[in-house]
Design a binder for these strands. Structure first.
Length: 498
RNA sequence: GCGGGAAUAGCUCAGCGGUAGAGCGCCAGCCUUCCAAGCUGGGGGUCGCGGGUUCGAAUCCCGUUUCCCGCUCCA
């Protein structure tokens, strides 16, 4: 599996198109096509259901993308979300200019000709006063002047482009939750621990976007801020550490529940040196993408950093009153922050399979039935028979009230199946002559159709009247094997091409 | 942003100074009683974009945009 194959499939089958393609494309932006938007909506819907509706301790939120500029001052993004970068003119490597002094460096001092010596970490040369100027990787090249990379999109509120009107497109949805902490607390009568979930677009001027939809400058996050009382203990551990561990386990399990192979998932603990300025501990859920292990979701313990900062900058109290201790506390927050686009990419990559069937290559997207863009395809075996076509269209219309169901008659049955396999449709329904009967042979129809399973390619005969209950069982997770056992396999009446 | 590679039909690619091609896919018709069948026909490309050289440029030169691989970063 390589990314190019997937990019090609995604475009060919209407999942993902490059943004503004007719104008030559625009960097790092991608559009979700008819099937892509279904898939993405399904991912967001099951995430919301599992993390908000099914839990008694979670509520949702949808904050605006544009916020008061002070939000980003308080959050630290204006000051910390910038990286001064310097490039080596010789080996072309790039470095964080603020981390160049981290190690000792070899210095050819101009003030003391012929002298080459090592300067200790963090110190300037005591002879000439200069700091590190040569590349720490190759030791030869001069470094360029540090250039400031601001990762936030700057824009103007209102039509006048003046400094007072500057604000930012949010670089994370999290801050919308923090600034609404008190509103949600007051209106929903919540007790710690509780969480607020939000799905929405965020924007970062990434230095290097790429790898298809993996790193883009406009992306969609699925974030949870789970507030806990840091003074509580659970199972003998501080509440924030306990819940952090719980969320790490829950989130890892979530990806597996929707079909990601366990061997393609792992947890990676952040080292002390790579922790964000607000984080006490962070663990990443990583997926084995075609380009290597990369982050799907970061689960951070943000402590009381954000609420404290916003309280300080806004002058508003952002505390929770602990009834038992009769005191105000600033909650700690655990943040499971997932990428919707990255999840979608992982589900595509993980579901993609090529197998050999009768000497032909079969491409199948083994998407979890809840995620599949199309749930059921209803197909006529023969499109020249009006009764077959009419019955198939009626069956589709009936099923479409409950599930995304499509009708297709533009090819022979084998090709129709393969097309549906390639876009991950879990089940097909085929209407044939037996279903509707054959007037010329005075045969009556049996009103039964073939239901075909994507993964096993198994087929059963099901009365049209029982289709809804069969699909209810299949989509509730009962499994093909269990459901198929109640129905006869399709009777083979010969195959003219065999 | 730097270095390297690439850009021709929906997809994969050939053509590399002289009338834009193939395979697959797509559409239509015929045929066909269940896993990418066959036959016939069809639509579709100002060869990424803009300049230049030339009688003539997909082809050579310059610029530019986008994608891919590294550096780097994160959801």
């Amino acid at each position: 599996m390589n990314m190019e194959t997937l990019v090609s499939l995604a475009k060919r089958r209407g999942f993902i198109f490059q943004s503004s393609e007719i104008y030559g494309g625009t960097g790092s932006c991608w559009d979700y096509g008819p099937l892509g938007v279904e898939l993405k909506n399904n991912i967001k819907r099951v995430w919301w259901r599992d993390n908000v509706h099914l839990r008694p301790d979670m509520v949702g939120l949808d904050a605006s993308i544009l916020m008061h500029a002070m939000v980003w001052k308080a959050s630290g993004h204006v000051d910390h979300f910038t990286d001064p970068m310097a490039d080596c003119r010789a080996c072309k490597r790039r470095f964080r200019a603020d981390q160049l002094d981290a190690g000792p460096w070899v210095h050819y001092c101009a003030a003391k000709a012929g002298n080459k010596f090592e300067v200790p970490a963090g110190e300037p040369c005591k002879h000439c006063g200069s700091r590190r100027t040569l590349c720490p990787a190759c030791g030869k090249g001069e470094l360029t002047e540090p250039r400031q990379f601001n990762l936030m999109f700057k824009t103007f509120m209102g039509p006048v482009e003046e400094d007072a009107a500057i604000t930012y497109l949010r670089p994370e949805t999290a801050q919308g939750i923090f600034v609404n902490f008190d509103n949600v607390l007051q209106s929903m009568r919540l007790k710690l621990p509780f969480g607020i979930a939000q799905i929405g677009k965020s924007f970062r001027n990434e230095i290097t976007p790429g790898n298809f939809i993996f790193r883009t400058r406009e992306f969609e996050q699925m974030e949870i801020e789970y507030f806990v009382n840091p003074k509580d203990t659970v199972n003998g551990r501080p509440a924030d550490e306990y819940w952090h561990e719980r969320w790490i386990e829950d989130r890892l399990a979530w990806y597996q529940r929707y079909g990601i192979h366990p061997e393609n998932l792992r947890l990676r603990e952040h080292g002390k040196d790579e922790l964000s300025h607000y984080s006490k501990r962070t663990a990443d859920v990583e997926y084995r993408f075609p380009m290597g292990w990369s982050e799907l979701e970061g689960i951070a313990n943000r402590t009381d950093y954000d609420l404290t900062q916003h309280a300080r900058f806004s002058g508003k109290s952002l505390t929770y009153f602990d009834e038992e201790r009769k005191e105000h506390v600033v909650p700690y927050v655990i943040e499971p922050s997932a990428g919707a686009d990255r999840s979608l990419l992982a589900f595509l990559v993980d579901g993609y399979a090529e197998e050999e069937v009768r000497g032909e290559k079969r491409v199948v997207l083994r998407l979890h039935p809840e995620l599949a863009p199309i749930k059921i395809a209803v197909l006529p075996l023969l499109k020249k028979r009006d009764e077959i076509v009419a019955t198939a269209q009626a069956v589709r219309a009936d099923l479409a009230r409950r599930w995304v169901a499509v009708y297709d008659d533009t090819a022979a049955i084998g090709r129709l199946y393969r097309r549906q396999d390639e876009v991950g449709t879990p089940y097909c329904v085929t209407v044939d002559v037996q279903t509707v009967g054959d007037p010329e042979k005075r045969e009556a129809g049996d009103q039964q159709v073939t239901v075909r399973d994507r993964d096993s390619m198994g087929q059963i005969r099901v009365p049209i009247g029982e289709l809804t209950s069969v699909f209810e069982r299949l989509f509730s997770g009962e499994g093909w094997t269990a459901v198929a056992a109640r129905y006869p396999p399709r009777r083979v009446r010969g195959n003219v091409r065999a």
